[in-house]
Nucleic acid binder design. Structure first.
Lengths: 206, 206
DNA sequence: ATTTAATGGTGACAATTATCACAATTGAAT
DNA sequence: ATTCAATTGTGATAATTGTCACCATTAAAT
């Protein structure tokens, strides 16, 4: 990616993308900054500033061309940069993520799931197979996967993470409610549902 | 809550809380800012600044008292402010969230789940019952619930959201990959997994 | 053709958030 | 007692992010 897009802008771009896609489905040719802003409860100048970062220009009294805008966002977010990943832990959360259709669209390719429950092995979910966790090192190497999405139950989180790291995984997207211990060269991204809720609660709920 | 805690700090506080709890389980009496910082890959002065917001004081050469710190974070984040909520959509994601143990601890009380699949009705998950969605308006009123966690499949998201709003729900924590249309007095909080991943990807993954 | 109102573009500023540097403190070692 | 090193506390500063005001443009109405 040429220019660095600030974190918050990345987040908003995905929202813009959803909304613009909806507009396109409805055969709308244009969308204005205030339409987007209203939907997201933000300032409309913010939207325009964001688009300036993409070098996306609009037309006065008309707005932005939905088709161009969508393509531009996709290009900017690197949708075409395909990355392969495994889901580790085929519980409810793992299965939910395996079915989450946006991942494909946004360049995150889930190749397989892993679990240690014999009943789940060889099941298929969303065309992805569930393997025994013992197969992971081999498959990670073979398929050249270095991203793992960790969705195992809390008590196993650290041990499984250690195992992943031994197996050559370098990026862990951590959905467990644990703060993992990992060497510095391993990148851990903590998905923090509680923080997310608390921010909502502090800001909006009386 | 007396003082307003910035968004980012709230997020970090939940991480500190996890780590401190771990230290307490290991019978450690103290924890230093750099221990916390290292674990989270942040600057240690950041940790101290955050604690200053809580009026938490440490001791030179010793650090912060784990027990006090934990209680302080819990008080600050309002763990005791219990809030009731429903999960709407008893698919994998809904069930995963129903089992997520942190919600209870942090004051978010899931009272029930809702779905329209007859096979799921009356099942129990984590001591929470699944009801038919048609029962929601009545139960929301009866139990005084105005928070809904929306985990239905994408195609139903908007319709179900409209239904929730009619039923008196005022806060929607939206886990669907849709940007919901809602009147201004309804607070919608979009959980944006894709944005989360893309931020990770942009920042860390080459 | 002229006017009008909606819309994008943008600079200035404000608020939030993070980093750095370093003084002050103090437990431990000698 | 003195020294040393680890640690906190904090002001200064930088980077990021958001808001506001207002000009420029232009499609539509007249």
């Amino acid at each position: 990616m040429a220019k660095k897009i600030p974190e918050k802008v990345v987040s908003r771009l995905t929202f813009y993308h959803s909304i613009v896609s909806e507009f396109i489905e409805q055969n709308k040719k244009n969308i204005t900054s205030s339409q987007l802003a209203q939907r997201l409860n933000i300032d409309d100048s913010q939207v325009r500033k964001d688009f300036k970062l993409l070098n996306e220009v609009g037309r006065c009294r008309v707005g932005y061309c939905t088709k161009d805008l969508k393509e531009n966002i996709e290009k900017t977010l690197g949708f075409s940069n395909k990355r392969n990943a495994f889901i580790v832990g085929a519980g409810h959360l793992g299965l939910a993520l395996a079915k989450y259709d946006k991942f494909d669209n946004y360049g995150l390719n889930i190749l397989a799931l892993f679990d240690n429950d014999p009943l789940k092995i060889d099941m298929q979910i969303n065309e992805k197979k569930i393997y025994h966790i013992a197969k992971l090192p081999e498959l990670a190497c073979e398929l050249n996967v270095d991203i793992a999405i960790l969705t195992v139950p809390k008590p196993f989180a650290q041990d499984v993470a250690d195992f992943l790291i031994e197996s050559g995984i370098r990026y862990i997207w951590n959905f467990t409610p644990c703060v993992l211990n990992a060497p510095e060269h391993i990148k851990v991204w903590n998905e923090n549902l509680m923080a997310s809720f608390l921010q909502f609660a502090c800001k909006e709920i009386d």
